[in-house]
């Protein structure tokens, strides 16, 4: 059943797409949490199972950190609450929407990727229940993209930059920006795998990637700059704490 459109009608359809696109530009894709109920059951379960080994590993690592110094539990809790509060941060308006940074990349740079998995999951649970960002059935998928994949990339990039002897601020900025970008790619892959069109997974992947790129690429750049400023502030105001968590150990200053 094909509907023939005249040129004029086609133009009308094109024009009617504009508001839709504008909405796309202005949507609260809010750090790319997949919303509640958006993933089919099997996908929800599989992503949860994929997260499980990371969470166990994360739990063991947190237990080890805490048994070595008890104060760390409060620092970790502060970092978790901080990641949550970042979602309330008044952000420079990017493409009309005020999206927010994830904060897990910064956490991975400061604490390493291991504790961030569990911490990120708790924060995501809180965001789902208190803010309705993300959801319970999509908790596994969101944890994987935001609390496991992103922090790992951030941490890797940060270590690499350190090896290359880049300045620390550049390293932090790159690490957090790329971590954010990777989170968005993983989320797009998850969405495309869950809802492939007739043209297959790849076609819908490009669709999701290109629609969300509108908000996520500027956001990633902003998150990189922000994280660099945050670390700069921390170095001038919170040196003892940074030394305590092992971020400033080897510099000896």
């Amino acid at each position: 059943m094909k509907i023939k459109l005249t040129n004029r009608e086609r133009r009308a359809v094109m024009a009617s797409c504009v508001p839709a696109l504008m909405t796309a530009l202005g949507t609260p894709v809010s750090a790319m949490h997949i919303m509640e109920g958006f993933l089919p059951q099997t996908h929800a379960i599989v992503w949860g199972v994929v997260c499980l080994p990371f969470l166990v590993w994360s739990f063991l690592s947190i237990r080890k950190i805490v048994s070595q110094h008890r104060k760390a539990v409060l620092l970790l809790a502060m970092m978790g609450a901080y990641a949550f509060v970042l979602s309330a941060l008044k952000m420079p308006s990017v493409t009309g929407s005020s999206s927010h940074p994830t904060g897990t990349g910064l956490g991975a740079v400061l604490f390493g990727p291991a504790p961030m998995a569990l911490l990120g999951m708790i924060v995501l649970l809180f965001q789902a229940i208190l803010l309705a960002h993300g959801g319970l059935t999509t908790l596994g998928a969101n944890t994987f993209s935001m609390a496991i994949a992103g922090p790992f990339v951030s941490f890797g990039v940060y270590q690499l930059c350190k090896k290359l002897k880049l300045s620390r601020l550049v390293a932090v900025g790159l690490a957090c920006g790329l971590g954010d970008l990777f989170t968005y790619c993983v989320t797009s892959v998850q969405l495309a795998l869950a809802h492939p069109g007739q043209a297959g997974v790849l076609a819908s992947l490009t669709e999701f990637l290109s629609i969300f790129a509108l908000t996520q690429i500027p956001l990633a750049i902003v998150e990189g700059i922000l994280s660099a400023i945050v670390v700069m502030m921390l170095e001038s105001f919170a040196k003892p704490e940074l030394r305590e968590i092992g971020y400033l150990v080897k510099e000896g200053n």
């Binding site: 901080y82 509060v85 970042l86 941060l89 008044k90 952000m91 420079p92 910064l106 902003v222 700059i225 922000l226 660099a228 400023i229 945050v230 670390v231 700069m232 502030m233 921390l234 105001f237 919170a238 704490e241």
Partner: peptide, 10 residues
Amino acid sequence: AGRVSGTLLA
């Protein structure tokens, strides 16, 4: 935004 979040974390 960077300064606010930096001060907040510190």
